[in-house]
Each structure stands twice: as C-alpha cells, then as structure tokens.
Design a protein around this nucleic acid. Structure first.
Lengths: 360, 360
DNA sequence: CTGTTAGCGCGTTCAT
DNA sequence: ATGAACGCGCTAACAG
C-alpha cells in the first residue's frame, strides 16, 4: 500500500528556484549560516507552503545514522524500569537523540526476527534494561553487528558495557540501618530467577557475617518462578501471591525475623500487605526495607523505607557511555568495557523502627 | 560518523552468482516460490555466511511502509497507560507490525520537532494514549500529513478516530453497586485537568440524579493542577499529596460521605491511604471504588474494588481501526470517524461494603 | 555562497 | 526462472 508521495526537497528546490543542495543544507543541517537571507527566505517560504517534511530514510540511507536510540524494556509496565525509561528519554533528548522503547520478544527465534527488523539499522544504539529473556542471544547478536549498546540496571554479571547501582553498598546500607536500629533477626526475600537478586543475597549474607550476625537458612527466601512472563498483564502471582506466601512462611516461623530486607520494592509491598492481613503491625512488630524506590513505594501507609537508585545519574552515565561509543574515536574502546557503579541512597520512611521485644 | 557498510543484497548476489533481483525476491518477499531449489540454497548459504540483514530504510524508501507502529504515551511510568501499551504491543505483533513507544514532548514547539522526526515517515500509523499536552497540535498535524492514528483511552471528546471504554456505563455501574449496598452519601473525586474525568463527573451527577439522589457540591472534588508534568518522575504531589488532602477534606465534613467514587485507581489508593492514616477503617467505615483496574490496585490491603477497562479488547479494537486505515480501501473512510466504546467490567474486591450507621 | 553529480540498498517494471 | 536498469529522497564531495 504505497501512500502518495509527500513533497521532497527536489520539489521545493524547483518552486524556490534553487538547487536541492541548498535546500538540504538549510533545512536539515545547522551548518554555518552560509546562505543569503534572500534565498533562505524563499526556501523557507516554499517549504512551508508545500508542507515539506524530511524523509528520515533517505537521510539514514546515506549517513547510516538515525539519531534514534532504542530501549528494550523487559516489561513496559514495570514500575522501576518504566521510571528508568523516562530518565533515559529525558537525557537522550537533552543530547539531541530521541528514544523509542519496546519490549523484547519472548523467545530466541522471535528475538532474532525482532533484531533483524529493529536493532540492525533503525537505532544508532541501544539500552538494555534489566534482565531480559534471551539476554545472551541478544548481546551476541549486537556484538556481531557491532551495534553499540549499554546494559542499564541489569546487574554486574553480564559481559557488556553497563551502568548499575552499587548493590553491595545498597544492601550493606540497608543491613547497617536495621542493625543500627537494634535488629538482629533479619531475613532476606528475593527471586531466584534474577541474577541481580542472587547477587544482592550474596551481599546480604556477606555483610551479615562481617557484622558477626547469622543469616540462618530459614531466613533466606529465594522464590522460584517469579519473573516477568512476557505480555502477562496481570502480575498477580508475581507481585502478590508468591511474595505474600513467602512472607507468611517467614512470619510463621517459631522465631520470626524482626526485619525483612527485600530485593525490590514490589516484594516489600507484598510483605507489608501480608503483615496487614495477618494483623502484624508495621513497623512496630516488623520492619521492612525495600530496594529501588519504585513508583508504588509511597502510595501506601506506612510509606516504604528503601534504598534509591538515582535514576537521573544513571541516565547521564548510561548516555555518556553510549554516546562515546557512537562517536567512536579513542574513547570508544574504553567504553566497551565500562562498568559504572552509581552510589545508592538510603530513603528513610515509615516501615522501619527498633524491634520492640529486646532480642539477643 | 558513518559506520562501516553492512552487507547488502548486492554483495550476496555477487558471492552467490545471481542477480540482486533474485536475492531480493527470495529474502524479502514471500512471493510464489518461483525460484529453483538450487539457487535458493546458494543464496541462503551466502546470506548466512555474510550475516546479511535487510536495510529497512532502503526498503521503506521505495515502499513507503515500515511495518512500524508508534504509541505516544503521555507518561511511560503511568500504571494504566503502560499496561495499555503492552496490550497494544502484543496485538500489533500478532498482526505482523512492531510497536515502538515514546512520550510526547512537553510543549508545542518541541512537539512539532518531534513530529517531524518521528511521525512523518517512521511509523505507518500511531496510537495516541490518554490525554496529552498539545493534543490539538498533534492531531492537526497528523491530519495534515494524512497519517493514520487512533486515540485510545483518551476520552470521547476528541475529534479523532477513537477507542475508549464506555465511561457512562462504568460510572453508572459503580454508583449502582454502591447504592445497591445501601449507600446514599456518595462523593466523587477526580482531576479538573482531564476532560475524561470531567466527563465521568458528569455521568456521576447524571446517574445520581436519575436515582433520585443528591450530589451536594461539597461531595464533588475536582482537583486543580493535578496532571502529568512531563519528565517529573516523582509523582508525589499528583498521586499522594493532592488526592490525600482532598480526601481529608471530604472525610472531615460534618456529614462525611460513606462512599467515594474515584475517577482513577491512583486517587482511590490515595483515599485509602488517607483513611488508614486517619484511623478510618476501610471498608467498614468508608467504601472506596476506583476506575481502570490499574497495576497497584491489588498490591495493598484491602484490595481495591474498581471498574476494569478490558485492555485486550481495547487493543484489538484499536488495531482493527488503525489497520483498516493503513490498508486503505473503502473501509478506511468509515474508520476515520470510528468511535468504538468497549464495555467495562465491575471488579468487586475489598474496599466496599454496606454503610454501618444507617443513613437516609 | 551555490550548483552538479554520484551513489546509499532496495523493489520493481520489463525483458529474456 | 532469472537479470538489467531505473529511481525512491537525500547527503557529500567537488566545482565554481
């Protein structure tokens, strides 16, 4: 279904009585102002009259650049990655790029198809947000195409240029805060399906040990099967059922924890909901600390104490890396192995206080 | 920064010893199988060896089609529109299109720039989600370019092909449910900045009247200044401070309402939070009903009773309209004035029950 | 300051 | 069943 041809620079060159080169320079380039005011006026007039609009394909065909960046968001409705997308969008535009967001396909076959259509030529570079399915397939292919990309908030275990928060610092901060409040019985809740949350578990255990505290096995819950199912828009199991069951088990222990460190705010909120349902008061009887400072963290009562990922800083760092790769030069090589860790922030709100019955 | 040229069909034609025509037909066309098995094998072999990938620009330059649809989401982190984006993405792919999401620019000048870059040629068609800034500017320009677009869940007040839920039915359903429970003192909370929520207010008043009930002015709160501020990632004022203040005022009235109809789930959750803070039990002392069935609706306790917009149905309808316009033909003209209303569903959860003190 | 010219990679007649 | 040749709209030398 070919559409009627829109006006091209050829046409406006003719009506303005100049060459297409001049038109091209004036309209689609901010070169030096090497154009006389008179011809400039004539051209702009003609362009306006005819309703000219540049054809990005023709330009891209020549320049091999589109000025477009892409972001692959594993879940368009994710409360954290969507906030991150906005930060990246803002920063991209500030630097003269536009950002388009899509979600990765569900399996590797589809993924390759998607790659072919989108990633190969449409975008100058890509952001990969979080841990997505077929991550290895994706980056292998991008490497093959020599397409610049940066992993953002996907953990530090990936063999790719990446920007992430310092999870070790964040978890240590959370544990230190709880211990400072007087807690000794501190549990950890995360999903076994994300390597990033596995890493956070490791940092939790490591830091507990360094403080001379024990993290008994029954205090560590890594849920299985809890991950994004592409295009499942309900999220009921993931954000409610599974973490609530885990929390209930934790709180039903003979010696229940007095505080729970959650690998993300979604789980933390589920723990809060579970406590409310069980009649356990938060924070009086149970302290909860999250991770990420996601959108719903302040929507409920009490508001969630958590560790924030500074999204603006992350976006700036991510664009620094990607743009350096785009511009090539000597900087590019370094950036290919960049591993930037951004400092997290402790956000104290209403879900933590000293334990009431004195433990220990 | 020109990148090194990737392999083109010319190159693979040469190594396979055939003409580019044949390669083009085999690789990017599912014509009749008018190619001998032998040459087919040779071509595929060469393509595979060289890592061929089609250049979408060259193709688009000729065909004036990209197979790409765009969605303009006023807020990438919106809990409702992001869910909607996912539904549209799924349905788009099912029909052989891919969908890319972006956020509209903040002001009309930028908006025109964005249009020029993106909407003019990159996308075969567009979805406009919700009420965005510069809506009129946007659709005027799209009309000018004869670019097919559909407004989705943006209300019915726009002069554009649209798909929306039947807000009148949804609000009536909500009011009927509360009245059936025995409520008589029913308030309404919405934002004055969205025409869609103004319309819902109208339906609320209309339906109350038709039931012989009064909606006194102090029971109607239309907040001012509560709307998306582009790129403000905090949302604190919008989703917490403003609606909580409104709820506090409502609940401090000499004769407070026994139930509140909220124009969206975000406000409903803020009302719930306010009640919790004030020590008012929900649903025993206050019933709350939302609108949309957004993501956070089930994250808290009690879970929110609301009216759901069936996203899958909406996505199917939206693609029906857009694809018809894309394919042109006689159907297209009708579709340009399509106004599809999808039936909402009442979702009964935990925030409503009969009022305790018998009113009336 | 402005014009001429030569492709970018692909789809598409029109031949064969 | 396959190939030759043209042009989509634009940019980038290179002239003038």
């Amino acid at each position: 279904m070919a559409k009627p041809a829109p006006v091209s620079i050829t046409e406006i060159a003719r009506t303005a009585g100049v060459s297409i080169t001049t038109v091209s320079r004036l309209l689609n380039h901010d070169d030096g102002l090497k154009i006389s005011d008179e011809t400039r006026a004539r051209i702009l007039q003609a362009a306006d009259d005819l309703g000219y609009q540049a054809n990005p394909f023709a330009a891209a065909l020549r320049t091999r650049r589109t000025g477009l960046l892409g972001a692959l968001n594993p879940n368009l409705a994710g409360t954290f990655h969507s906030l991150l997308s906005m930060a990246l969008l803002r920063e991209s535009r500030r630097r003269g790029y536009d950002l388009l967001v899509s979600a990765p396909e569900a399996d590797s076959v589809q993924m390759v198809g998607q790659m072919k259509r989108l990633q190969s030529m449409l975008f100058d570079g890509l952001f990969l947000l979080g841990e997505m399915l077929e991550y290895q397939t994706t980056i292998r292919r991008l490497d093959l195409l020599e397409k610049p990309y940066v992993s953002v908030c996907a953990g530090t275990h990936v063999p790719a240029p990446l920007v992430n928060i310092d999870d070790e610092a964040a978890i240590s901060m959370a544990v230190d805060y709880l211990v400072g409040l007087g807690h000794r019985h501190i549990a950890y809740l995360g999903s076994a399906e994300w390597q990033q949350e596995q890493a956070r578990l490791f940092y939790y255990q490591q830091h507990m040990r360094s403080l001379g505290l024990v993290a008994p096995p029954e205090y560590v819950v890594m849920m299985r099967g809890v991950t994004y199912t592409p295009f499942d828009v309900s999220f009921q199991e993931m954000w409610t059922t599974a973490p609530m069951n885990a929390a209930r088990a934790l709180l039903s222990l003979p010696q229940p924890p007095t505080a729970i460190v959650c690998a993300n705010d979604g789980f933390a909120i589920a723990v809060l909901k579970c406590a409310l349902q069980m009649g356990i008061r938060v924070p009086e009887e149970l302290s909860i600390i999250g991770h990420n400072d996601e959108l719903p963290s302040t929507l409920f009562y009490p508001e969630l104490t958590t560790t924030r990922q500074p999204l603006d800083e992350i976006a700036v760092a991510a664009l620094d890396v990607l743009v350096a790769m785009l511009d090539g030069g000597e900087a590019a090589a370094d950036k290919r192995s960049a591993q930037l860790l951004i400092a997290p922030q402790l956000v104290v709100r209403g879900t933590c206080m000293p334990p009431t019955q004195s433990d220990r």
